[in-house]
Amino acid sequence: MFLDPQILANGLMLGALYACIAVGFSLVWGVLNVINMMHGSLIILSGYLTFFAWLHLKVNPFLMLLVVSPVLFAFGYALQYGLINRVVSRPVLTTLTLTFGLDMILYNLMNVVFEATPRRIILDLGSLSVGDVVLPNDRLFAMFLALGLTLLLFWVMRSSRAGRAIVAVRMDRDAAALMGIPIRQVYAMTFAIGALMAGACGVLLAITFPVTTNISGLLLGKAFVVCVIGGLGSVPGALVGGLALGLIESYTGTWWGPQTAVLLGFVLMIVLLMTRPTGLLGKAGYE
């Protein structure tokens, strides 16, 4: 049963999406020490933008990656620079509550503007069959894009100036400030990248699943779990955590039903929080 390739394939496709969902959230948490409760809603927001662009303007959803991501980047930058930066050094309770308040506003507005009915893009790209395994092409593309984007982020963090600055701030904020790194901008940039990744995920989500505001909490929950499983604030951690969660849900979901699968994810997370708060990969800087 472990070897059923269809379950494995489903798990990997789901896992890649989870990794992509979590990686931006993890970056923000790791560098800013802020739990961004808006993350799920940001994903949904970009999902809606993609859907309506497809519906009304006939824009190819994949193309929307290039439109939505910068929009969310700008939105994230403004939000952090204008609002969150002001309270970023206050206790967890404050920052978490603030992002939750912002999330309520965004969520409410989306409900009014887009309505909560699930919306689904239908692309009909066919599917790939390998033996008994059926791989819908849209999901397959989404998986590769999710992995590709995650690796791209990894590369950006490693080799770009901004990326190095973010890593430096994460490792030692005060030292980075002394070296002349503008902390406020780096924070804004970090949050913006987190939002950009959420935006990209939203596009991929819209291609593969129905979009509705109702699942924003669910997506946020996935980001929590993946972060804790893989370890906070690292791209490889998010990748490992995402794939692990995708596989766990795929197998337990097939055996015991989807609710048990989600419950198991949370239980695993709580156990890990208690025993290995640095995650499965152990301590890792943002690399």
Binding site: G221, V225, T260, L263
Partner: peptide, 28 residues
Amino acid sequence: YAILRMKGHYFAIGSIAIVESMRLLASS
């Protein structure tokens, strides 16, 4: 006894996860 050994963000997340887990448990 189990979760108070966590601190800060980890405690916050853990305590939210408890609510979600209980809800899922109650539904199943």
